[in-house]
Design a protein around this nucleic acid. Structure first.
Length: 456
RNA sequence: GUGGGUGUAGCUCAAUGGUGGAGCGCCGGACUGUGGCUCCGGAGGUUGCGGGUUCGAUCCCCGUCACCCACCCCA
């Protein structure tokens, strides 16, 4: 027998999975569009040179490559790749369609991306990202509004304990320079510092050493960590602002860009004050994030019971320029759909009102020759807005009703010889066992009445 | 990529170096115009795959693959 599992890291979605996914995606899309983000879609496959060199070394290796086809198939060379995120394709789209797009472009995009990663809890090789990006503005309003949008999404889904940590790439650069880390080691040092909350100062010190960071620089970096009370600030605008204000001589004030970054991050935080993000934001001087295209503010969103993040984003003012030649400022935020789903699943956060049955009512007949009649009744019921499943065989009535019951279908419309002869139908409520026989034209109303009772 | 664990019926799991079981589910019947409860019967397995030790391996050993957990990394 051939293997039937989906490919490693890929998943099949059965009906209940799809209903839950569509529920979350629906909330995300409604909130995003409420903020004026317009939907776009892009191909699953990009030319490989579009993606290479945009994500840093780690990212490059995780790109799912597609080998050349036809006569070049044997070369082992790739010319296409599955998209790794939605941001780089967006930058390409903006460069390609600049004339057709508004000067200020707010777009949202909910599509799958692929990474040749090793699967783990909440991590798959094919997963959905829910992105919002704003192109054409350097205003900190952009960052603030995106924090607000994702906060509204999570709040609407029922999350009450998420935090959005913010930082700025320029503050990181400034801090590293101030500590005396050679510029060539910055990337590696950031990877190590990003682990402070997991490894603690000692572990990070060891990793910094391993990455060649000089002893003095290591001490100075860890001293900053100690000064900031061991990492990120308390949640909420006030705490974040206080922590940011304290990011003085060792973090922000080292370089002019650092001073500028602290001010712009301060404005971002101020602007979230009257949004859904206000109680959520925190300043984390060690938040780094992996993608190499970020140039300014960076954000990441977490809940306590998930090791990874629910999403993240940041400003990337140079990415579009890599495609178009001229600079288009941009900033984006991405929510990971399956991360959200994993947590919602574990916490039982899905509303009870999510439909779980394929239909509101099922027709059942005793004789095969009545199936056509069942189809006609179904047609009428469907026109009145009901979801109707026509049981396609004249099986024993017990078997038919058992099927409806096991699928959670609340009503059965029984068309027996007696009923048909009188132009009637028997409508049975499976929850209560009550049934009534009435004129066929009254069936829709009778079913709806039963559905109403079930919900009440 | 590193370390640990687990692979047995559709699912959740037992078992013993000597003919592989249960519960749930499924199918049929008691009950050929009515599901849930009960009772009876039935189907379903090359014990992940390959090799080794042994008279004999589901069990012991080696390899391999898959999955799970932690690390790493990320959404």
């Amino acid at each position: 027998m051939p293997r039937t599992e989906p490919a490693r890291g890929m998943r099949d979605f059965l009906p209940d999975d799809v209903r839950r996914r569509e529920y979350v995606v629906g909330v995300v899309r409604r909130v995003y569009e409420r903020f004026g983000f317009e939907p776009i879609e892009t191909p699953a496959v990009e030319n490989i040179e579009t993606l290479l060199g945009k994500y840093g070394e780690e990212g490059n290796q995780l790109i799912f490559k597609i080998l050349k086809r036809g006569v070049h198939e044997g070369s082992g060379e790739a010319d296409l790749a599955l998209r790794y995120d939605l941001t780089v394709p967006l930058a390409r789209v903006v460069a390609e369609h600049r004339a057709k797009l508004p000067r200020l472009f707010k777009r949202c995009q909910i599509q799958p991306v692929w990474r040749a990663d090793r699967p783990a809890r909440g991590r798959f090789r094919e997963f959905y990202q829910c992105d919002v990006d704003t192109l054409g503005s350097t205003s900190p309003v952009v960052e603030a509004e995106q924090c607000a949008a994702v906060s509204e999404v999570l709040a609407e889904l029922g999350f009450g304990d998420f935090r959005i940590r913010v930082n700025d790439r320029r503050l990181l650069t400034s801090m590293l320079a101030g500590a005396g880390v050679p510029a060539a080691l910055h990337d590696g040092a950031l990877v190590a510092l990003d682990k402070l909350d997991r490894l603690g100062p000692d572990g990070v010190g060891a990793e910094l050493e391993q990455r060649g960071v000089p002893p003095g620089a290591r001490e100075r970096l860890l001293a900053v960590h100690a000064e900031h009370g061991g990492g990120d600030s308390a949640s909420g605008v006030a705490g974040a602002l206080a922590a940011l204000a304290a990011a003085g001589s060792r973090v922000a004030d080292v370089t002019p860009a650092g001073v500028e970054a602290r001010e712009s991050l301060r404005v971002v935080l101020e602007l979230t004050r009257d949004t859904a993000a206000a109680p959520r934001v925190a300043y984390d001087p060690f938040l780094a994030r992996g993608l190499s295209y970020y140039t300014g503010a960076i954000m990441e969103i977490n809940v306590p019971d998930l090791a990874g993040s629910l999403g993240g984003g940041g400003r990337y003012d140079n990415l579009v320029g890599m495609f178009s030649g001229d600079t288009v400022p941009a900033c984006g935020f991405s929510l990971g759909l399956e991360r959200i789903l994993v947590v919602m699943e574990e916490r039982g956060m899905f509303p009870a009102s999510l439909p779980s049955a394929p239909a509101d009512v099922m027709t059942a007949v005793f004789r095969p020759e009545d199936l056509g009649h069942a189809l006609r009744l179904a047609h009428v019921l469907r026109q009145s807005g009901l979801r109707v499943l026509v049981y396609p065989d004249a099986d024993k009535m017990g078997k038919q009703i058992k099927y409806a019951s096991s699928r959670g279908i609340p009503c059965v419309a029984i068309l027996g010889e007696d009923e048909i002869g009188r132009g009637e139908v028997t409508v049975k409520d499976l929850a209560s066992g009550r049934q009534e026989t009435l004129a066929e034209r009254g069936a829709g109303a009778a079913v709806k009445a039963m559905l109403g009772e079930g919900r009440g």
